Deep mutational scan, measured.
Amino acid sequence: QEELVKAFKALLKEEKFSSQGEIVAALQEQGFDNINQSKVSRMLTKFGAVRTRNAKMEMVYCLPAELGV
């Protein structure tokens, strides 16, 4: 569980995922086979993730800066 949270936060820091499906796929690539869209959705809510525009003006998920991840 701890490893999943770390990987999840690291992915969001990249600010390149525009959908929950993309986050699920990226986590599965890292070996988290039991991850699915509903789990990702709950984690996004739990950590207060928001959708914002990145440098390329794409809408992407990211974590609020005050979490200091």
Rank of each mutant, 00 (worst) to 15 (best):
S38W: 13
Q1K: 11
V69E: 15
N34R: 09
T45C: 06
Q30F: 07
E29Y: 09
E66H: 10
I35D: 01
V24A: 08
A26R: 07
V60I: 07
V50E: 06
F32A: 01
G31W: 02
K56E: 10
A26L: 05
T45P: 02
L11F: 05
N36Y: 05
Y61K: 01
R42I: 12
V50R: 10
A26M: 06
S18C: 04
Q1L: 11
K6V: 10
K46G: 08
R42P: 01
N36Q: 05
A65K: 13
V5A: 10
L44S: 01
I35G: 01
E15T: 05
A26N: 05
K46P: 00
T52F: 07
V60H: 03
L63C: 11
R42V: 12
I35P: 01
K46N: 10
G31T: 01
P64I: 05
E66G: 09
K46C: 07
A26G: 03
E15F: 07
Q30R: 10
E15R: 07
L11V: 05
F8D: 00
M57V: 03
E14K: 08
V5N: 12
E66V: 06
A10K: 09
V24D: 01
E2L: 12
L11D: 00
K56I: 06
R51W: 10
Q1W: 14
G68H: 09
L63Q: 03
C62D: 02
V40K: 00
C62I: 12
K39T: 14
L63A: 03
Q1C: 15
L44A: 02
V69R: 07
V5H: 13
G31F: 03
S38A: 14
G31P: 00
A49W: 03
S41H: 11
E3T: 11
A25Q: 13
V60Y: 04
P64D: 04
R53N: 07
A49P: 02
V60A: 04
Q37H: 11
E58W: 03
L63T: 02
E58S: 04
G31D: 02
L12E: 00
Q30C: 06
A65L: 12
Q1V: 11
L44H: 00
E22K: 07
A49H: 02
T45V: 13
V24Y: 05
